[in-house]
Computed example of a mutant assay.
Amino acid sequence: MSLYFSGSLKIGNKILITKKPYEVLHREFVKPGKGQAFVRLKLRDLLKGKLFFKTFKSTDSFLLADITVIDVIYLYKETDGLSWVFMNKKTFNHLSVHKEKLFGADKWLFNNIQCSMTLWNNIPILVRISNFIDLEVQDVELSVKGDTINFSSKLVKLVTGTKIRVPLFIQKGDFIKIDTRQGIYISRSVV
């Protein structure tokens, strides 16, 4: 493992703090007129997904975390309802991931969708889905035609089982583009 000083850290570095992996999202080096230089970091806890700021002396050192990111394909959900199975695209090995490691991506998973999986010491800790995906509308809530004063959107159920609000012109069988980070409708898709 490589040793990094906080003064030489870069955005995207994965480091160990108290034996847990963190990703550096933002770095600010501060050299005050008086006193020792310090580094203010914005970090993401890779095990819990939480963001926070932390300040370190410029001489503090960190070990580089053994983090790898692989491309995987979603296969199926286990019968226990708590685990999802993915296949590594290069080795074809199957990896089972607990729901808490999906961080909300389970709402958008359907067969054969490509994702990226973060491994720490070859153990899955995070699954990320593309920011924008196209999904088919499976069911549409009934709405009163012409009633745009009270409702300018309607609720639809997607093939993944997730329900979201869309404009009134969306029909059953349409494909729509969704922002998976916010869980909102973007546009109608041409598939």
Rank of each mutant, 00 (worst) to 15 (best):
residue 4 Y to P: 06
residue 4 Y to M: 06
residue 5 F to A: 13
residue 6 S to W: 00
residue 7 G to Q: 15
residue 7 G to Y: 11
residue 8 S to M: 09
residue 9 L to M: 01
residue 10 K to I: 00
residue 10 K to G: 11
residue 14 K to Y: 09
residue 16 L to Q: 08
residue 17 I to V: 14
residue 19 K to V: 09
residue 19 K to L: 06
residue 19 K to C: 13
residue 21 P to I: 07
residue 21 P to E: 07
residue 22 Y to P: 05
residue 25 L to T: 04
residue 25 L to M: 09
residue 26 H to Q: 07
residue 26 H to C: 13
residue 30 V to G: 07
residue 30 V to K: 04
residue 31 K to E: 13
residue 33 G to P: 12
residue 39 V to F: 05
residue 40 R to G: 05
residue 41 L to P: 04
residue 41 L to V: 06
residue 44 R to F: 11
residue 47 L to Q: 14
residue 50 K to E: 02
residue 51 L to N: 09
residue 54 K to L: 01
residue 56 F to H: 13
residue 56 F to S: 08
residue 58 S to E: 02
residue 58 S to A: 13
residue 60 D to V: 01
residue 63 L to T: 05
residue 63 L to G: 05
residue 66 D to H: 02
residue 67 I to V: 10
residue 69 V to H: 02
residue 71 D to F: 03
residue 73 I to S: 11
residue 75 L to Y: 07
residue 77 K to N: 13
residue 79 T to V: 08
residue 79 T to F: 06
residue 81 G to T: 10
residue 81 G to S: 08
residue 85 V to C: 04
residue 86 F to V: 06
residue 88 N to Q: 07
residue 88 N to E: 06
residue 89 K to R: 15
residue 90 K to R: 12
residue 91 T to N: 04
residue 93 N to C: 06
residue 94 H to S: 12
residue 94 H to I: 08
residue 95 L to W: 09
residue 98 H to V: 12
residue 104 G to M: 10
residue 108 W to L: 01
residue 108 W to I: 06
residue 109 L to S: 13
residue 109 L to Y: 05
residue 113 I to K: 14
residue 118 T to M: 04
residue 118 T to S: 00
residue 120 W to Y: 14
residue 122 N to D: 11
residue 123 I to S: 11
residue 124 P to G: 12
residue 124 P to N: 14
residue 124 P to Q: 11
residue 126 L to G: 11
residue 128 R to I: 14
residue 128 R to D: 15
residue 136 E to K: 12
residue 136 E to P: 09
residue 137 V to I: 04
residue 138 Q to D: 06
residue 140 V to S: 07
residue 142 L to H: 12
residue 144 V to E: 01
residue 145 K to A: 13
residue 146 G to E: 05
residue 147 D to W: 06
residue 151 F to I: 08
residue 151 F to S: 15
residue 154 K to I: 13
residue 154 K to V: 14
residue 155 L to W: 02
residue 157 K to R: 12
residue 160 T to M: 00
residue 161 G to H: 10
residue 167 P to M: 14
residue 168 L to T: 09
residue 170 I to G: 05
residue 170 I to W: 05
residue 173 G to V: 04
residue 173 G to A: 05
residue 173 G to N: 12
residue 174 D to E: 03
residue 175 F to Q: 13
residue 175 F to W: 15
residue 176 I to Y: 14
residue 176 I to D: 08
residue 179 D to E: 03
residue 180 T to P: 12
residue 182 Q to G: 11
residue 184 I to Q: 00
residue 186 I to D: 00
residue 186 I to C: 14
